[in-house]
Design a binder for these strands. Structure first.
Lengths: 245, 245
DNA sequence: ACAAAAGTGTTATCAGTACACCCATGC
DNA sequence: GCATGGGTGTACTGATAACACTTTTGT
């Protein structure tokens, strides 16, 4: 496999992580910094998504997985190719132009945007080669390129999907409490949910399975742990075409 | 605006049309034909989606709209950019290689796939420059490139979306009967629906508005006509976050 | 024994499902 | 007046929404 880059096509990865402790939906960003000020004395110091050009013999999905693996060391996360950004002027900000020169890439680059879902604690940020950090989705730092737009569109897609598909479980550890799940929905959707109604509704689902286990290392009454069964979900879903418009 | 093509990026358009008369969900395809048999005596005569390379100064959305307009003469249809297809070997079929040579394009082309929705009767197929024709989604002809895959993925997306978003109305004329809508859901989803329950459910929606009008030119009891109000829909939707997993 | 978070119950209203016949119209 | 497709009603069951207190546990 040659490692020749395709100069005008890239992937960008929005990495969403849910932090069960702080109950915060976060995005993983890396610092973009150019220390030597250029002739116009512009200094670049902002944040961007992780991304890279695709190689000549590589599929788009593989490129995204590769980029993610380089950032986090992780494989096999939930991955969704959600949109392509290819406006001719998407990289026409001054800083982006300077950056493109220093990194030697094409200003008319079409980027295929993916988002990934995981619980934040799965990523070890110590010794991270890219200086990656989590930022709450509602409190993002200054972003380079058109990455704020990309993140916002990813978030909209995630919001909508969370209502209709069982993707929330990708943001939680394998074993979770009903409260964790409720906190997650509240974070994603920005709403309050009645815990009695939520518990009843979710516990009733066949694919939410109570384990013979409770929380440990917790300083108050430990809560019941549950898991999500993808197999059961598929079976339930197959016979349900509920039109819900 | 220069009309220089970007050689390795294209758009492809899956055009879905619903025919209220035959109750059939169709796809608009054009004939791909190469008459002079090449040295291996291979003749190309199959069907493909409409598509084209993007121009240097053109957005992806504009490219898709342009291609669609050239095929149908229509503007402002519902348009959804649903996926990118960019496997290095997506055009490695013999016929595709021959075709790429004759048309002089890059074998490693990444294509941004869109689908469009409209009622079939809006397209005039007489005098169509591309010899376009409607084919039922369940009975497609032989397809070139990876277009069968693209169509199937578009269809899956459409199926899923039809359950959760009001996109079905894009496939119907502005004025439609409840039976038309039911026929449409039955075609898209491949299921049977009880007409009493369906009518009750849909008529109850505030954004389905009964008109002071009935069908004309019909040989039996003319049915009540309805319209869909996007504005009312938005208002209803804004306050509903129904978790439905 | 106290603080903190887990967990529980009821009622009223609404939505979904299953099921079969009458009605209005054009011809 | 008849064939055709449009249109309707009921009973049952399950889901949602609104609402506040008790229980369990670790410390």
């Amino acid at each position: 496999m040659t490692l020749e880059k395709i100069p005008n096509i890239s992937v960008d990865c929005v990495v969403f992580g849910f932090d069960v402790i702080s109950k915060s939906l976060n995005v993983l960003l890396i610092n973009r910094r150019l220390n030597k000020p250029n002739k116009e004395n512009i200094i670049i110091d902002d944040y961007v998504l992780t991304g890279y050009h695709i190689y000549k013999n590589e599929t788009l999905d593989d490129a995204a997985s590769r980029v993610l693996n380089e950032l986090t060391g992780l494989h096999n996360l939930y991955k969704k190719q959600f949109k392509v950004f290819g406006n001719p002027n998407r990289l026409m900000n001054k800083k982006d132009i300077i950056w493109a020169e220093s990194e030697n890439f094409n200003l008319r680059t079409v980027t295929v945007a993916y988002y990934f879902l995981l619980p934040t604690h799965e990523v070890n940020l110590e010794e991270n080669p890219y200086n990656a950090n989590w930022f709450p989705i509602n409190n993002l730092p200054e972003l380079g390129f058109d990455h704020e737009k990309i993140i916002n569109e990813a978030y909209e897609d995630l919001k909508f999907k969370s209502l209709h598909e069982p993707i929330t479980f990708e943001l939680l550890p394998d074993k979770f409490t009903i409260k964790d799940l409720q906190d997650l929905y509240e974070s994603i959707l920005g709403i309050q949910i009645d815990n009695r109604n939520f518990r009843r509704k979710l516990i009733k689902k066949k694919y939410i399975i109570a384990l013979d286990e409770k929380q440990t290392g917790v300083s108050k009454k430990p809560a019941q742990l549950y898991m999500f069964s993808r197999d059961v979900y598929k079976k339930v879903y197959e016979k349900n075409f509920l039109i819900n418009i």
